[in-house]
Write a protein that binds this DNA or RNA. Structure first.
Length: 267
DNA sequence: GTGATTCGCGGAGTTCAGAG
DNA sequence: CTCTGAACTCCGCGAATCAC
């Protein structure tokens, strides 16, 4: 299985070691991804020294990635139902990499703890047709939900019912052929009087009936599978809508918070 | 003071792509 | 094919903090 992690960040292997990292923008000490100027400078210094470079770079990458998830569009806010335990208990926004290509949320990443938010989001995507997630989730608009879920479902069901009805009304091609054959054999039967011949026809008839019954059962099973697939798709679309709503709410909260902060600063 | 919880981090393990 | 370096997850441990 290909590791999806590399698809988002890109593999930068065999490139010169990085010397520049994005420093977290947060000035709020309460933010778990906040880092002081002094600590950041110390890390950069450690990154410059060959002896401490490896550990420092690891920390810098981690801080950078966590801050990106929390502060930029690289991250998306996970809806309440998919939030990980750590974020839930800490009461912070649970943010995973856009498209959930990364398995852990920012906080779990920071604390190096297992995270269930990423996998939940990822599952929602992996079952999507590729086109569904070729653009960002945030970019989803009314065009991606042209048909309301209920309508989609009912339309689909109606379609399937119609298809089923059509099959029932028209009968399968095989059915019509056999019926014709049956009719033909029925007429030929009129001229026959032997008992064995009658038994043969009886057996042939019951075999055909059995075959038709099996065909109907198979059709029914296939239809059930289609229904299950569509129900799964509807569930995914519903989750997507929740994600979009949560993102909008988070953006709104951020805007309100920034505004309040700027007012406080002016005082 | 003590036990429980939370936090922070080292390091192991896995996967990948590019270079040799 | 092997080596190297980057990205990522998460186990497990010690330190810090909290509740009683």
């Amino acid at each position: 299985m290909a590791d999806p992690r590399h698809s988002i960040s890109g593999n930068t292997a065999a490139k010169p070691p990085r010397t520049q990292f994005r420093r977290p923008r947060s000035k709020d000490r309460d933010d778990f991804w906040h880092i002081s100027q002094a600590d950041w400078a110390a890390l950069l210094e450690a990154n410059a020294a060959p002896a401490t470079r490896s550990a420092a770079r690891k920390k810098l990458r981690l801080i950078e990635h966590v801050a990106e998830l929390m502060e930029t569009d690289v991250g998306i806010t996970v809806p309440d139902f998919a939030m990980c335990e750590l974020c839930r208990t800490a009461g912070v926004a649970c943010r995973v990499a856009r498209g959930a290509t990364s398995m852990a949320c920012a906080k779990c990443m920071k604390h190096k703890k297992p995270c269930e938010a990423g996998p939940v989001m990822q599952r929602g995507q992996q079952e999507q047709p590729p086109s569904m997630f070729s653009t960002s989730w945030r970019a989803l608009d009314s065009s991606s939900a042209e048909i309301p879920l209920n309508d989609q479902h009912s339309d689909v069901n109606a379609g399937m019912e119609n298809a089923g009805e059509e099959r029932m009304l028209q009968g399968s091609p095989e059915r019509s052929v056999t019926d014709k054959r049956e009719a033909g054999s029925d007429t030929s039967l009129l001229g026959s009087s032997t008992h064995s011949r009658s038994n043969d026809l009886e057996e042939e008839h019951s075999a055909r009936r059995l075959k038709r019954q099996r065909q109907r059962e198979e059709d029914l099973a296939n239809e059930e599978i289609e229904v299950l697939k569509l129900e799964a798709k509807a569930a995914r679309l519903a989750m997507e809508a929740d994600v979009f709503a949560a993102q909008s709410e988070a953006r709104l909260m951020r805007a309100v918070y920034e505004r309040r902060k700027s007012i406080e600063r002016r005082r």
